[in-house]
Every structure is written in C-alpha cells, then in structure tokens.
Simulated assay, not measured.
Amino acid sequence: MGDSFTEGVGDRTKYLPNGVRGWADRVAERLAKAEEGWEYANLAIRSKRLRHVIAEQLEPALALEPTLITLYAGGNDILDFGTDMDVLMAQYEALVATLAGTGATLVLFTGFDIRVSALLEPLKKRNAAYNERVRELAAKYGAVLVDYWCFDALQDRRMWDADRLHMSKAGHKYVAAQVLDHLGVPHKISLKEWEPPSRMTLRDWERRQRRWVNDWVLPLFGRKLRGVTLGDNLSPRWPDPVKVPRKGGLKKLIEQAER
C-alpha cells in the first residue's frame, strides 16, 4: 500500500505494469523463491496522499485477508503546502491500527532525509516529525520497522533517479534487500561494486542543477498549482493477487498472459 515508493517509480522496465518494477516486486519474487505459494498484490500509485491511500486502498487491502502488509504513505503530504502534521499523523495512526488489527505482519517505513536541494530544506522538520512518529507507532503496534532514514548507502546520488525524489534501480534493489533482511528471508540481492563518485566541476554542478529545476522542480510545482498528479490516470500495478512464479518472476506472468 502506498505511493510511488512502493509502486516502484525510478526502477524502469518495459515489461511490467506502469513501466516500473521496484523493491516490492523484488521482495515478492524472493518470498516466492523461499516458500512456494505466495500471492502478491500491489495497490500503490504514484502521487497518492495519505487520504487517498485510506480511501482507495484500505478496503481492497482488507478484502485480500493478507498475511503480510507493507505501508509507506504520507511523504507526498509532507511536500504539500499547509499540511497539518498533527492531523496527518492521527490519520496515519488510525490506518496503522486498522492494518495491525488484521493480524498480518505489518512493515512500516520512515522517510529518507536526502539532501535534495536547499529548496526543500524547509520540509526537513516535517520529515523528522513524521519519522519519529512512525518509530513510535511501529513499537506500539508491533510492526516491523524499516528505518529508511538511517540507510547511509542511499547518500550516494547513484541510488536516486534524475528527479532526486525517487530511487533508481540500484536504490530499489538495496531497499528490497533491507526489507528481506528485516523479514528474515534469504536472498542473493547484491549491489555492484561502484567506484567512488567523481567530483563535479562547478560548471557541471550548475548545469546539473539547472536541468533538475527545469525538468523536475518546475513541472512539480506546476502540477501542484493545477491540482493534478502523475498518478491521476493510473491504476494499481497488481490490483488482484497474483501467484508469483518461483522461476521467471513476475515478468513470466506477463509473458504468459500475452501468449
């Protein structure tokens, strides 16, 4: 359940729904390899606010009678003007309480404090408040906490997509490994060895900043002003449970459906 983080934005592929893969697909595939019979649904859609997750994803999720639930929601609310954090976290707790009440293993995430730009520094306090509350609620409701905020490996800019807000393929692989480790599920996900990132010249840095503002920041604020999001015309990637093949992964399901 959730938004772009769980949908898989940044981990591009032409073979899977919505053109992405992501850490959740990778976790589902490893679960299926470790124990046959796992079924997987992914209700997350990019740009969704917490209220949308509650209104659109909670009832379908409960209807599935899940044994494992992952939830990350609220990050987009933090980026919105005028968000009341007390109200937001009260709604978040109500959602967590409902999900915990199903008896399923519940996995929660803090938000990562990436230093995207000085433009977004005013949101840092909101993110810190969100993370502290998520930690408290994970302890209160017995949830598994993936403390995303603490992952030093994500400081490397290669872990992030061009928009600097969504993880790259490498970032999604890293988070998949972390989730599996927290669940005690064996896996062989590993990141390739990287050379230390090269230092940019001032000119390269300025060019990179200008491109980022033009390609991502201005369109983002433009959508906010128009009241539209990138997820408005999208459907959940896996709205109904699919039995994950032990060999071939989720891509195999698409290939079989196209035959």
Score class of each variant (00 low, 15 high):
Asp3Phe: 05
Ser4His: 02
Ser4Glu: 03
Thr6Pro: 00
Thr6Leu: 04
Glu7Ile: 04
Gly8Arg: 00
Val9Lys: 12
Val9Trp: 08
Arg12Leu: 14
Asn18Pro: 10
Arg21Ile: 13
Ala24Lys: 00
Asp25Asn: 13
Arg26Tyr: 08
Arg26Val: 15
Arg30His: 14
Arg30Gly: 00
Leu31Tyr: 08
Leu31Lys: 09
Lys33Tyr: 01
Glu35His: 08
Trp38Lys: 06
Trp38Cys: 02
Glu39Arg: 15
Ile45Ser: 01
Arg46Trp: 05
Ser47Glu: 09
Ser47Val: 01
Lys48Tyr: 13
Lys48Met: 12
Arg51Trp: 09
His52Cys: 07
His52Val: 09
Val53Ala: 02
Ala55Pro: 07
Ala55Cys: 03
Leu62Ser: 07
Leu64Asp: 01
Glu65Asn: 14
Glu65Phe: 10
Pro66Asp: 08
Thr67Met: 03
Leu68Cys: 02
Thr70Ser: 15
Leu71His: 04
Gly74Glu: 03
Asp77Thr: 07
Leu79Phe: 13
Leu79Pro: 00
Gly82Phe: 01
Met89Ile: 05
Ala90Ser: 12
Ala97Pro: 00
Thr98Asn: 02
Ala100Gly: 15
Ala100Asp: 08
Ala100Cys: 10
Gly103Cys: 06
Thr105Val: 13
Thr105Lys: 11
Phe109Pro: 00
Thr110Pro: 02
Phe112Ser: 05
Asp113Ser: 14
Ile114Pro: 01
Ser117His: 13
Leu120Met: 11
Pro122Cys: 03
Lys124Leu: 14
Ala129Trp: 03
Glu132Ala: 13
Arg133Thr: 15
Arg135Leu: 04
Glu136Ala: 14
Glu136Pro: 01
Ala139Phe: 02
Ala139Pro: 00
Tyr141Glu: 11
Val146Leu: 11
Cys150Ile: 00
Phe151Glu: 02
Leu154Cys: 10
Leu154Ser: 03
Gln155Phe: 02
Asp156Tyr: 04
Arg157Met: 06
Met159Val: 05
Asp161Phe: 10
Asp163Ala: 11
Arg164Leu: 12
Ser168Asp: 07
Gly171Leu: 06
His172Asn: 12
His172Glu: 12
His172Phe: 09
Tyr174Gly: 07
Ala176Pro: 07
Ala176Ser: 09
Ala176His: 08
Ala177Ile: 09
Gln178His: 10
Gln178Val: 13
Gly184Gln: 08
Lys188His: 14
Ser190Gly: 10
Lys192Val: 09
Glu195Arg: 15
Pro197Leu: 07
Met200Val: 00
Thr201His: 00
Thr201Gly: 06
Thr201Asn: 02
Leu202Ile: 12
Leu202Gln: 07
Asp204Met: 05
Gln209Thr: 12
Arg211Gln: 12
Arg211Asp: 10
Trp212Pro: 06
Trp212Ala: 10
Asn214Cys: 09
Asp215Leu: 13
Pro219Val: 11
Leu220Ala: 12
Phe221Gln: 07
Arg223Thr: 06
Leu225Glu: 05
Gly227His: 06
Leu230Tyr: 06
Gly231Leu: 13
Gly231Met: 10
Asp232Asn: 11
Leu234Val: 10
Ser235Gly: 09
Trp238Cys: 01
Asp240Thr: 13
Val244Ile: 06
Gly248Met: 03
Gly249Tyr: 09
Leu250Ala: 04
Gln256Met: 15
